[in-house]
Every structure is written in structure tokens, then in C-alpha cells.
Design a protein around this nucleic acid. Structure first.
Lengths: 123, 123
DNA sequence: TTGTTTGTGGTAGAATATTACCACACTTGT
DNA sequence: ACAAGTGTGGTAATATTCTACCACAAACAA
């Protein structure tokens, strides 16, 4: 997820791994492993933000980027982690989905339904 | 969440903190902080499982217990963490809820709606 | 071949996070 | 007052995670 994303973003900029790391202030060896999912994404939010800036990500794109990093680390995004009410909904969400074999399309639909539900509840 | 849960479970068994820790093989000082949310819940799954067993939790109760521990640590439950398809839905879920002030009741409804949606999609 | 550039593996060191130890204050009971 | 039991604060020790360094192999070029 995060690994594929950062690699593809780097390649879009036509940068070699070393050049990219030079410009972004990262260690090439470590980053090579990050891009392959061997090492975890950086945990430091500052590093992630500078990466997002480097790639020109803003708004929703940037948020998704940060979320991907957290999720690949097996963590909750920081703003979710201290969103008390949202956290209360998460166990129910896990319960609903756990143990089911869902196709990717079904999952996408479910996610979209959630969004719509939310919009309806708050119109 | 986890902190309140374990404290209330211990009190239900009418155990002092020290007695409980003796029986469960935990350090009283650390556990005191865990019950107050100062120290994080144990990260070791084995420890959590033996706690669940000690409290007589099984099935859904046990899962919820494990989820609470992970969430209070700001982590995803391990089985969720490597549930690829579920992970794909999470960013959408975060996006849907982020930045909104939801009442607890609304959150509960949302969670319930998710459950129903899921059931419908798979009937 | 020789030199460069690319990505990668292994691992030591640093940085963090977790746990355990010890001493203390506060109660309660004798 | 004393003793025993309760929970807690501070911090040292430990364990874990993360990062950076170095050397290497493959591909490519001169």
C-alpha cells in the first residue's frame, strides 16, 4: 500500500532511489526496504509531511497518504487515535467485517455506502 | 476503555490489585498505571490471551477485549492489520467520519448501519 | 576490462518503548 | 501507636524498534 504508493510517486518524478533520497534527506538502503514493504513507513509525522510536500500532495490526497503510512505500520492515524467517538465505532466495524471473505468490489461498495450513510445522517 | 474494562473485571472478582497481579503474574505498580491509562495495555498477545482466560472471556467478548487493548495502544488488532481487503475500506471509513462532531448515539447508529449493510450485501 | 550507477543485504548503534523494582503515603484494624 | 495491606510515583533495567552505515552484486557504459 504505502510502499507501492511511494515507489510509484518516485518513479513518476523519474528519480532514482538514490537521487530521491538525497533530495528528501533519507537513507537509500532503508528506503529501498520501505518501498518493498520490508521496513515500515517512517513513524515520524514530520518526515511523512515533508514527503507529502515533496510529492505535492495536499488535502484529501495528503490525508490518504498519511493514513496509508499508519495502516501499514499497523497503527491508527494519530487524529483517529484520539477521536474518542470514532474509536467507539471501530470495534463494531471490525466485528462486521471480520471473518468474511469479501471481494474488493464489495469492500469498495461498503466503503461508499458508509460515506453515503454519513452524508444522509447529517443532511 | 481497556483500562476501565480490566479494572471493572478485576473488581467483579473482588480482587485487590496486588492479589490479582500475583495470580495473573503481573507487576502491581505497572498494572496500577495500566488501569488508569497512564501505561499502555500489554502489547504481547500471549499476555492478553491469558488475561482474557483469567477473566473467563471467550468468543465475541474475547475479541472485543483484544480490540480494546489494540485500540488503546493506537494500533490495529493484528487480525485486522493483515486483512488486506478490510484495510482498503478503513481509509474511506476514516474519511467519512473525520472532522465531524458526532454524538455517541449517532456513532452507534452508524456502526449498526454498517452491520446491517454488510448483512444485506451478503444475504 | 575498468569504472559508474543502481538497488540491496546484513548488522551495529541509536532511539523508543515497555517492564520491573523500590520506596512512599494513606488506610484500616489491633 | 503499631502492623499489615492497599495503591501509586519515580526511575533503572530491559526489550524492542528503528535507522544509518558499509559492502556487495548486477547492469550499463566507456
Amino acid at each position: 500500500m504505502f510502499s507501492e504508493t511511494v515507489k510509484s510517486l518516485r518513479l513518476q518524478k523519474r528519480l532514482t532511489l538514490r537521487d530521491f533520497c538525497d533530495q528528501a534527506g533519507l537513507d537509500p538502503s532503508n528506503w529501498s526496504k520501505v518501498e518493498r514493504g520490508i521496513n515500515p513507513p517512517p513513524g515520524d509525522v514530520g518526515v511523512l509531511e515533508s514527503l507529502a510536500t515533496f510529492f505535492g500532495l495536499t488535502g484529501a490526497e495528503k490525508l490518504a497518504f498519511m493514513d496509508q503510512a499508519a495502516l501499514q505500520r499497523g497503527e491508527l492515524p494519530p487524529d483517529v487515535a484520539d477521536h474518542v467517538l470514532l474509536q467507539k465505532a471501530l470495534p463494531a466495524f471490525f466485528r462486521a467485517a471480520r471473518g468474511h471473505e469479501l471481494t474488493e468490489a464489495e469492500m469498495t461498495n461498503l466503503a461508499e455506502d458508509i460515506r453515503k450513510l454519513h452524508a444522509r445522517d447529517h443532511k
